[in-house]
């Protein structure tokens, strides 16, 4: 496979994953704004920070209002991480690697783009917002479904999955990075409504509120939530889950190509670390430091993969 093709697949699925994650962030922010109008603006500010677009947002707006944040995150072409921008990028990459995709995967990507292009042609009103956010996630799910249902399990598939899981791990880590303080025991008033809402927002940002309740019906506490989002390999958006898959995808490539590269070692190290550590240990050593370290290792393995498989210079 061409290095460029591997890179195109990887980025295509990173961008698709990002479109979903951004829509979840908006959803969680919207929810909290509806229930707690007083500090809604702070909440929107933290959504912008989590999305990693604070600088470009502040260049454009002086304050954090629901209207401007939602518009910026959903459809602003000045924001390279807006839903519309990333879906555009995903489709461009899909065109680039069209020969590596099944017709179903290409068509669902193209349809995702066409649907959102139309849906996001004008500013989205509050009334329409839930439907629009649902559509974003559904469209991305359709592409994923086509990928699972129609693609051969070759290097092509594995590069696509690597993009998905690296992006997802990054996203979960960023949510925790911005909100880590609400999980710290020192400032928490167990059971206060304020904390409950904050915790729920975190879970909602990763569509994990129901899953969490299912596993822990009677136990809403920050340590368990942190454990759930970082170390619980059953939770499909946790660090541990993502790295179990990243390591497996890289294993496949190692066997298929018959050569081990630096990224393999890095992935194994990160996964081993997630398996061996405990949540108590993490809190003891510093939650924020742990998350920060994870984010930078995640970025570094991404660069290593690009390098090891010769993507060089081709991401659109």
């Amino acid at each position: 496979m061409l290095g460029k093709t591997a890179g195109g697949l990887y980025w295509m699925f990173r961008y698709l994953e990002r479109s979903e994650n951004i829509s979840r962030l908006i959803d969680a922010g919207f929810r909290i704004a509806l229930t707690r109008s007083k500090s809604a603006n702070d909440e929107w500010a933290s959504v912008i920070r989590t999305a990693g677009v604070r600088e470009s947002y502040e260049q454009k707006y002086d304050s954090y209002t629901a209207t401007s944040v939602i518009d910026f995150l959903l459809r602003d072409s000045d924001n390279p991480s807006s839903v519309m921008s990333v879906v555009d990028s995903a489709r461009l990459n899909a065109r680039l690697v069209r020969t590596a995709l099944t017709r179903e995967v290409w068509e669902s990507t193209n349809e995702c783009w066409m649907t959102l292009k139309q849906l996001l042609a004008r500013p989205v009103s509050e009334r329409e917002l839930p439907r629009v956010l649902d559509t974003v996630r559904q469209q991305s799910a359709l592409v994923r479904g086509a990928l699972h249902g129609t693609m051969l399990r070759t290097d092509i598939y594995n590069f696509a999955r690597l993009g998905t899981f690296l992006e997802r791990a990054d996203n979960t880590a960023r949510i925790l990075d911005v909100k880590y303080y609400v999980l710290l025991p020192s400032v928490s008033f167990v059971g206060s409504s304020l904390d409950n809402i904050q915790w729920e927002t975190i879970l909602r940002s990763v569509s994990g509120q129901r899953a969490y309740r299912w596993l822990y019906p009677a136990k809403v506490d920050p340590v368990t939530i942190a454990d759930f989002l970082m170390l619980d390999a059953r939770m499909p958006r946790s660090f541990a889950f993502c790295y179990t898959h990243i390591a497996a995808n890289l294993d496949y490539l190692e066997k298929d190509y018959g050569i081990s590269r630096p990224c393999h070692e890095q992935a194994d190290e990160i996964l081993d670390n997630l398996k061996e550590t405990t949540i108590d240990q993490i809190f003891e050593d510093g939650l924020h430091e742990f998350i920060g370290e994870f984010i930078s290792r995640n970025i570094s393995i991404g660069n290593q993969i690009e390098n090891d498989y010769q993507f060089y210079g081709n991401a659109v």
Binding site: M1, L2, G3, K4, A6, D155, F159, L253, Y257, I259, Y309, Q310, Y312
Partner: peptide
């Protein structure tokens, strides 16, 4: 051009 031939950059060189 690699060794007098045209070659494409793949994930394996």
């Amino acid at each position: 051009v690699v060794d007098g031939r045209i070659a494409m950059r793949t994930t394996q060189g």
